[in-house]
Simulated assay, not measured.
Amino acid sequence: MTDPGPHVLEVAKAVRRRTGLSLWHGKLLLGRLPATILDDVTSDLAEAVAGELRAAGASVEVRR
């Protein structure tokens, strides 16, 4: 993820749903951008997570 966008709380909730981190840890992660949200996952899962984060307002990059 490169930028959380204007809706930081919504993005933190999406990070929480996909990673299992607490909301507090998710918000901390957003303060340290750019950051890797998930590592070593299938391309389908990566695209699904990226889509969810983009829908919440974040700028996301999927790297292979």
Rank of each mutant, 00 (worst) to 15 (best):
A35R: 10
I37D: 00
D39N: 04
G51N: 10
S59Q: 12
L45A: 11
T36S: 10
L23Q: 09
E61S: 07
A55K: 15
K13G: 02
T2H: 02
A48V: 06
T36W: 02
H7W: 09
L38T: 13
R63M: 04
A35V: 14
R16P: 05
A56F: 04
L53D: 06
A48F: 00
V41I: 15
D40V: 08
S22Q: 04
S59F: 01
A46S: 07
T19L: 07
R17V: 15
G5V: 03
R32D: 10
V11W: 04
R54C: 09
R54Y: 11
A12W: 00
G20Y: 04
V62M: 06
K13F: 03
D40F: 03
E61K: 07
P34Q: 13
E47H: 14
A56Q: 04
R18T: 10
A46V: 02
A48P: 00
L53C: 03
E10A: 14
R54T: 13
E61T: 05
R54I: 10
R63L: 07
A55T: 13
A55M: 12
A50H: 08
L9C: 03
D40E: 13
S22P: 10
A56I: 02
G57K: 03
L45Y: 13
H25A: 10
R32E: 14
S43N: 15
L21M: 15
A55R: 13
L33W: 05
S59W: 01
T36Y: 09
G51Y: 09
S43T: 15
A56D: 03
P34K: 10
L29P: 00
V60Q: 03
P34H: 12
V15R: 00
M1E: 02
A35N: 12
V41E: 04
G20C: 05
G5Y: 07
G51V: 05
V15F: 00
T19C: 10
A50L: 08
P6S: 10
A55Y: 11
L33G: 06
V15P: 00
E52S: 14
R63I: 06
R16T: 15
V15H: 01
D40Q: 11
R63E: 08
A35T: 12
L21H: 08
H25F: 03
R16G: 08
A50Y: 04
V11L: 06
R32Q: 12
T36F: 04
R17P: 11
S43C: 14
V49M: 04
L30E: 02
P4G: 02
T2V: 06
V41L: 06
A58F: 00
E61F: 01
H25K: 12
S22E: 09
L45H: 13
E47V: 07
L28Q: 14
L21R: 12
L29Q: 00
R18A: 11
R64Q: 05
S22Y: 09
L30A: 07
D3G: 08
L53K: 06
A55P: 10
V62F: 09
W24Q: 14
S22L: 08
H7T: 12
V62C: 06
W24D: 15
S59N: 03
A35D: 08
L29S: 00
E47S: 11
D39K: 11
D39H: 05
L29D: 00
V62P: 07
D3E: 14
L21A: 07
L53T: 02
R17H: 13
A12E: 00
A56P: 05
S59P: 06
A56H: 01
R63W: 04
L33S: 11
R32M: 13
M1H: 06
R32N: 14
A14H: 04
V8E: 05
T19P: 03
